[in-house]
Design a protein around this nucleic acid. Sequence first.
RNA 1: GGGCGGUUAGCUCAGCUGGUCAGAGCGCCUGCCUUACAAGCAGGAGGUCACUGGUUCGAACCCAGUACCGCCCACCA
Length: 832
Amino acid sequence: MAGLQERTRFEPGEVEPRIARRWLESGLHHPDPDGTPEENYSIAIPPPNVTGTLHMGHALNGSIQDCLIRWARGEGRRAKWILGTDHAGIATQTQVEKLLRSEGTSREELGREAFVQRVWRWREEYGGQIVEQLKRLGASCDYDDERFTMDEAYAAAVQRVFCDLHDQGLIYRDNYLVNWDPGSGSAISDLEVEQREGVRDTLFHIRYSDEVVVATVRPETMLADTAVAVHPDDERHRHLVGTTVTLPLVGRELPVIADEHVDPAFGTGCLKITPGHDPNDFEIGRRHGLAEIGVIGEDGLMTPAAGRFAGMTVERAREAIVAELDAQGLIVAREEHIHTVPFSHRSGRRIEPLISLQWFMRMDELAGPAIEAVTSGRIAIHPESQSRRYVEWLESIRPWCVSRQLWWGHQLPVWYRDDETYVGTTPPAGDGWERDPDVLDTWFSSGLWPFATLGWPDATPELRAFYPTDVLSTARDILFLWVARMVMLGLRFTEQVPFEHVYVHSVIQAPDGRRMSKSLGTGIDPLDVIDEHGADAVRFGLLAMSSTQDVRYSPEKVRQGQALANKLFNAARLILATADGELAAPRPTTVEDRWILSRLERARADAAARIAEFDFAKLALGLYDFVYGELCDWYLELIKGRERDAELSATLLFVLRETLLLAHPVMPFVTEEIWQHVGGRGPDEGLLARARRGPAIPELVDERAEAEVGRLIETVRAVRAWREDNGVRDVLVAREDGLGEVRDAVARLARLEWGEPDGELVVVGGLEIGAPEVDAAEVARAREAERGRLRSEVARAEGKLANEGFVAKAPAAVVEAEREKLERLRAELEAL
RNA sequence: GGGCGGUUAGCUCAGCUGGUCAGAGCGCCUGCCUUACAAGCAGGAGGUCACUGGUUCGAACCCAGUACCGCCCACCA
């Protein structure tokens, strides 16, 4: 390893692989399962899809979680970041099917068993890339204990939960209208449906009888109509209720029913009821006991129930039906209709609602406790505004369709024989049983994530030590899809909340405000950015960008992080070149020592507060401010002229150590690299990642030192600004004015000599400075400008104080402050 | 159709329960190779805080409305 002094720049490309290897070899990320969940710290990573690669969202969330985990380690806690990947049913199956197609074969050709084996093989080969990519980010997950939602033990937990819920009557099989996704050839849950706005369709007005004209954008579904509905209060149609109309093309008699759902103002006020292919109509149908006819099959073709249209595709059938209706003159109007239409989130295909025999999970009984966990505060959601969304969603929760017509996933532990159904974790005895081919919704298995990863249902040491977990950090879009379900299942099966805090982070948008997405070409690959700027820079940048609301990606923040890493590196070089000796308690001997220790103490307290409130942007930016604005700009400049002694060394090394520890959760690589060059580390402190932050020392906060150095800073700045304005570079003579301990420092930084100034006298930053070479007229003009500024400020303050309302109603302290300000301004004006 | 959030310097964003709150980083301008860092240092310019009313002694901050932008939820054919 090269010495620190030979390099003037922090080179992430050289340092990161070396440091990452040391961390991995050290085993620091794999804590022993000792102690209690209260004293330990754990986070279960939102398991990325096995097919996935690292995107900005992962990088942000990884930075957040690693920051929390490393912060906890710095407290000396056993910290476990539970790692694993999700088998991601539809996504993975789709990916492998695509591969098969390119090989000229297909899932069907292979058959189920071979296909599933093929997916496993695919996973061996290509899966889990993302885990390697997390290492690049510096994420200190527990790589020694990686899980997969299809692992044997995990699968057993899934089956167990399914069977238990079935035995408890919460899981049942039913014919129900589901969201059929023609893309994946499976039912999907409500949450996987995206309501797309602004879809243009033709609304056909079709005459069913002299008095009944209905409107629909899906004429082909008329074949499945089983009623016509009108609003019960609709005067125009009330007399029709109880009569029937004849369904054109089919000849079926349809009862006219009355239902509140019908909007009398829409179209003619008559609504065709198609329980088999429309969610609303399905509800109405169930209310009125109507027959449920399915004319569109799961294969996307018209079913035998469609009569002479059977076998046609939906599109063909529509054309044929419209043509026949036209021929009979039954289409009375066509108009363009713009409305919202459901699409599959997975495949992007338009949802085909149809009735299907599926497995469902009743949620009402589970929702209550999950709501209570949040309203009672046992689970805190950050930002708080998200908890209302969570509660409202749970309050109106509907049954969850958990079966999927896929091959890749947890196959249902269900067997059928004739009319018998068997549900159990082991196959039934006897012959003739056939297993249900369906698999479970991926979110069913990931709903068990925080405890199934730790070995549940067995009472493992890991479960005892790390469950419940502390924090669950995630993006907003899976609050319902995943987080709510973990809470429900966690409470049901472990009788504990699965985590105490939910942090909902922002979504990073593309710089132009669009979504970052591969298909839009707006994605930015975090690995590219790591290559270019380093992992510390990316972590800092993403944290600094993060917010409670969505933010645009800003490369400047990453560069700011890179600058900070470099700054830390160089500050360390200076400190280590200046200080010798060992790490020790600080023994401040000067005002600047007391000042930096005071500022450091505040920075540490501030960082702790930011972590506690999940404010990562302020954590990162606060760190930047401390390192740049205080440590480097002032303290390190102040000690440059100073004689080296043991006391200075002690303070420098103390400040360095605590600053590194403070910055480490945000920028682990550069801080670890520096640490390796600090002498006199303790026996357990070979790695910064393992070292413990020193305890808070409130006594280090020193208001007097802060005031004195504050005065110094103000004075130096004023003199520098004045020099710039007047183009004066020479050393100047100034009359010393009660600067006390900081007089020499001011003189050095402002390039002054104390003495009796002669020539033109200027007052700068409260000092009288002799400025021989300055143009007197120029000085006078500057002085006049300053006078003008002060006068207007004085006038403003006077006006305020002359205002009776202000003096009478404003708090005394505010009025007093205004008076003092006025005094000060007047004094300054006087001095000029 | 409901609900939520946003609109502050050229850009990306901070500004807590109203009273030095008009800020930061980047960009821009000026001057510096000052022996940790030129990926640096010092200094500077730049904003009617979306708009319109209101409340208040006082509003970027509170209230109402308007205009854009974004997100979530929703069964109107």
